[in-house]
Simulated assay, not measured.
Amino acid sequence: MAPFIADVGNRGLGSGASFGMREKPSGRIIGVMSNFVVTPDDSEIFQETKYDEEKSNWYSNVMRDFSTGVDVFQGKFKKCLELMILCVHPDYTGKGLAKKLVKLSEEKGREIGCDVLSIQATNIITYHISKKLGFQEIHRQELDTLTDEKGRPVLDMEFLKTNGTTFLSYLTKAL
Protein backbone atom coordinates (compact mmCIF):
# COMPACT_ATOMS: atom_id res chain seq x y z
CA MET A 1 0.00 0.00 0.00
CA ALA A 2 1.29 3.47 -0.84
CA PRO A 3 2.40 5.44 2.24
CA PHE A 4 0.10 8.30 1.23
CA ILE A 5 -2.96 6.03 1.32
CA ALA A 6 -1.78 4.46 4.58
CA ASP A 7 -1.48 7.92 6.19
CA VAL A 8 -5.00 8.91 5.13
CA GLY A 9 -6.36 5.52 6.21
CA ASN A 10 -4.73 5.77 9.62
CA ARG A 11 -6.13 9.25 10.14
CA GLY A 12 -9.58 7.89 9.32
CA LEU A 13 -9.23 4.88 11.62
CA GLY A 14 -8.31 7.18 14.50
CA SER A 15 -11.30 9.45 13.89
CA GLY A 16 -14.01 7.22 15.31
CA ALA A 17 -16.09 8.07 12.22
CA SER A 18 -15.01 5.24 9.92
CA PHE A 19 -16.81 2.01 9.08
CA GLY A 20 -16.08 -1.51 7.96
CA MET A 21 -18.17 -4.49 6.91
CA ARG A 22 -17.35 -8.13 7.49
CA GLU A 23 -18.59 -11.24 5.77
CA LYS A 24 -20.57 -13.22 8.36
CA PRO A 25 -19.30 -16.75 7.71
CA SER A 26 -15.58 -15.97 7.44
CA GLY A 27 -15.28 -12.65 9.27
CA ARG A 28 -13.15 -11.22 6.45
CA ILE A 29 -13.41 -7.52 5.73
CA ILE A 30 -15.44 -6.86 2.59
CA GLY A 31 -15.93 -3.09 2.73
CA VAL A 32 -14.27 -0.05 4.32
CA MET A 33 -15.10 3.66 4.53
CA SER A 34 -12.37 5.79 6.12
CA ASN A 35 -13.57 9.23 7.28
CA PHE A 36 -12.37 12.12 9.40
CA VAL A 37 -13.58 15.54 10.51
CA VAL A 38 -12.13 18.80 9.22
CA THR A 39 -12.98 22.39 10.14
CA PRO A 40 -12.18 25.70 8.44
CA ASP A 41 -9.20 25.97 10.84
CA ASP A 42 -7.53 22.91 9.28
CA SER A 43 -5.04 24.24 6.76
CA GLU A 44 -4.78 21.19 4.49
CA ILE A 45 -6.09 17.68 4.35
CA PHE A 46 -2.97 16.52 2.52
CA GLN A 47 0.10 17.25 4.58
CA GLU A 48 3.50 18.18 3.18
CA THR A 49 4.67 14.60 3.58
CA LYS A 50 7.39 13.29 1.31
CA TYR A 51 7.95 9.59 0.69
CA ASP A 52 10.77 7.53 -0.74
CA GLU A 53 8.52 6.12 -3.43
CA GLU A 54 8.40 8.39 -6.47
CA LYS A 55 4.87 7.33 -7.49
CA SER A 56 3.55 7.87 -3.99
CA ASN A 57 5.08 11.36 -3.95
CA TRP A 58 3.58 12.08 -7.35
CA TYR A 59 0.13 10.88 -6.26
CA SER A 60 0.19 12.88 -3.01
CA ASN A 61 1.28 15.96 -4.99
CA VAL A 62 -1.52 15.47 -7.54
CA MET A 63 -4.09 15.11 -4.76
CA ARG A 64 -2.67 18.12 -2.88
CA ASP A 65 -2.75 20.24 -6.04
CA PHE A 66 -6.26 19.00 -6.84
CA SER A 67 -7.60 19.95 -3.40
CA THR A 68 -5.72 23.28 -3.07
CA GLY A 69 -8.14 26.14 -3.16
CA VAL A 70 -11.23 23.95 -2.84
CA ASP A 71 -13.46 25.37 -0.12
CA VAL A 72 -15.78 22.61 1.09
CA PHE A 73 -17.12 25.06 3.69
CA GLN A 74 -18.15 27.66 1.07
CA GLY A 75 -18.36 30.28 3.81
CA LYS A 76 -21.45 28.68 5.35
CA PHE A 77 -20.38 25.37 6.89
CA LYS A 78 -18.44 24.86 10.13
CA LYS A 79 -17.66 21.15 10.35
CA CYS A 80 -17.09 18.67 7.52
CA LEU A 81 -16.91 14.90 7.53
CA GLU A 82 -14.34 14.07 4.85
CA LEU A 83 -15.10 10.70 3.23
CA MET A 84 -11.64 9.62 2.16
CA ILE A 85 -11.29 5.96 1.29
CA LEU A 86 -14.15 3.80 0.04
CA CYS A 87 -13.28 0.19 -0.82
CA VAL A 88 -15.44 -2.86 -1.44
CA HIS A 89 -14.03 -6.34 -2.04
CA PRO A 90 -14.40 -7.32 -5.72
CA ASP A 91 -16.56 -10.33 -4.79
CA TYR A 92 -19.14 -7.93 -3.31
CA THR A 93 -19.33 -5.15 -5.88
CA GLY A 94 -22.78 -4.30 -7.23
CA LYS A 95 -24.55 -5.33 -4.01
CA GLY A 96 -25.04 -1.82 -2.59
CA LEU A 97 -22.30 -2.04 0.05
CA ALA A 98 -20.53 1.15 -1.07
CA LYS A 99 -23.82 3.04 -0.98
CA LYS A 100 -24.53 1.65 2.51
CA LEU A 101 -21.08 2.76 3.74
CA VAL A 102 -21.63 6.29 2.43
CA LYS A 103 -25.10 6.41 4.07
CA LEU A 104 -23.60 5.22 7.38
CA SER A 105 -21.03 7.98 7.08
CA GLU A 106 -23.78 10.52 6.45
CA GLU A 107 -25.64 9.36 9.58
CA LYS A 108 -22.41 9.56 11.60
CA GLY A 109 -21.72 13.04 10.25
CA ARG A 110 -25.09 14.26 11.49
CA GLU A 111 -24.58 12.49 14.84
CA ILE A 112 -21.25 14.23 15.50
CA GLY A 113 -22.48 17.66 14.42
CA CYS A 114 -21.10 17.98 10.91
CA ASP A 115 -23.04 20.23 8.57
CA VAL A 116 -21.43 19.06 5.31
CA LEU A 117 -19.90 15.92 3.83
CA SER A 118 -17.18 15.94 1.18
CA ILE A 119 -15.76 13.19 -0.97
CA GLN A 120 -13.02 13.10 -3.56
CA ALA A 121 -14.12 10.73 -6.28
CA THR A 122 -11.06 9.22 -7.93
CA ASN A 123 -13.09 6.75 -9.99
CA ILE A 124 -16.36 6.72 -11.88
CA ILE A 125 -18.08 4.34 -9.44
CA THR A 126 -17.54 6.58 -6.41
CA TYR A 127 -18.58 9.56 -8.52
CA HIS A 128 -21.90 7.97 -9.56
CA ILE A 129 -22.68 6.68 -6.06
CA SER A 130 -22.05 10.15 -4.65
CA LYS A 131 -24.22 11.86 -7.26
CA LYS A 132 -27.07 9.37 -6.67
CA LEU A 133 -26.90 10.14 -2.95
CA GLY A 134 -27.26 13.89 -3.51
CA PHE A 135 -23.65 15.11 -3.56
CA GLN A 136 -22.90 18.12 -5.77
CA GLU A 137 -19.65 18.48 -7.71
CA ILE A 138 -17.70 21.61 -6.69
CA HIS A 139 -14.36 20.94 -8.43
CA ARG A 140 -13.06 18.71 -11.22
CA GLN A 141 -9.62 17.91 -12.66
CA GLU A 142 -9.41 16.16 -16.01
CA LEU A 143 -6.52 13.69 -15.77
CA ASP A 144 -5.47 14.09 -19.39
CA THR A 145 -4.35 17.64 -18.55
CA LEU A 146 -1.68 16.44 -16.09
CA THR A 147 1.80 16.72 -17.55
CA ASP A 148 5.37 16.41 -16.33
CA GLU A 149 7.89 19.27 -16.27
CA LYS A 150 8.48 18.78 -20.02
CA GLY A 151 4.77 18.97 -20.87
CA ARG A 152 4.39 15.24 -21.55
CA PRO A 153 1.28 13.36 -20.32
CA VAL A 154 2.03 11.56 -17.06
CA LEU A 155 -0.82 9.06 -17.19
CA ASP A 156 -1.77 6.28 -19.56
CA MET A 157 -5.20 7.62 -20.47
CA GLU A 158 -6.15 4.58 -22.54
CA PHE A 159 -5.62 2.37 -19.48
CA LEU A 160 -7.53 4.78 -17.24
CA LYS A 161 -10.43 4.94 -19.69
CA THR A 162 -10.83 1.15 -19.48
CA ASN A 163 -11.25 1.59 -15.71
CA GLY A 164 -13.61 4.54 -16.07
CA THR A 165 -11.21 7.01 -14.44
CA THR A 166 -10.53 10.07 -16.54
CA PHE A 167 -11.01 12.77 -13.88
CA LEU A 168 -10.88 13.61 -10.18
CA SER A 169 -14.00 15.16 -8.69
CA TYR A 170 -14.58 16.95 -5.39
CA LEU A 171 -18.21 16.64 -4.26
CA THR A 172 -20.08 17.91 -1.20
CA LYS A 173 -23.45 17.37 0.44
CA ALA A 174 -25.04 19.65 3.02
CA LEU A 175 -26.45 17.84 6.03
Rank of each mutant, 00 (worst) to 15 (best):
20 G>W: 07
129 I>F: 02
135 F>S: 01
93 T>M: 08
31 G>I: 02
41 D>T: 13
100 K>R: 09
59 Y>A: 15
41 D>L: 14
40 P>W: 09
40 P>Y: 09
55 K>V: 15
131 K>G: 08
125 I>W: 07
18 S>F: 00
44 E>W: 10
123 N>E: 15
167 F>Q: 14
84 M>R: 05
16 G>S: 11
56 S>F: 09
42 D>K: 10
82 E>T: 10
1 M>Q: 06
133 L>W: 03
175 L>Y: 11
115 D>W: 02
66 F>E: 01
98 A>G: 15
58 W>S: 14
30 I>S: 01
154 V>Q: 04
71 D>A: 11
112 I>T: 04
3 P>A: 14
17 A>H: 10
46 F>G: 06
9 G>L: 11
73 F>E: 09
92 Y>N: 09
134 G>P: 05
163 N>R: 14
100 K>D: 12
76 K>C: 14
137 E>M: 14
56 S>L: 08
49 T>C: 09
93 T>V: 12
50 K>D: 13
146 L>V: 00
25 P>H: 09
35 N>F: 03
162 T>H: 06
128 H>R: 13
115 D>T: 05
117 L>S: 02
8 V>F: 06
78 K>W: 05
120 Q>Y: 12
134 G>C: 10
13 L>V: 10
19 F>N: 07
12 G>A: 09
35 N>H: 07
60 S>R: 11
116 V>I: 13
107 E>C: 05
50 K>Q: 14
174 A>C: 06
10 N>C: 05
82 E>M: 13
147 T>A: 07
104 L>D: 15
85 I>Y: 03
124 I>C: 08
157 M>D: 02
90 P>S: 11
21 M>I: 15
93 T>D: 02
8 V>C: 10
109 G>Y: 00
157 M>C: 05
172 T>L: 05
159 F>R: 14
139 H>M: 06
39 T>S: 15
160 L>E: 09
122 T>M: 12
127 Y>C: 07
117 L>P: 00
84 M>C: 14
151 G>Q: 01
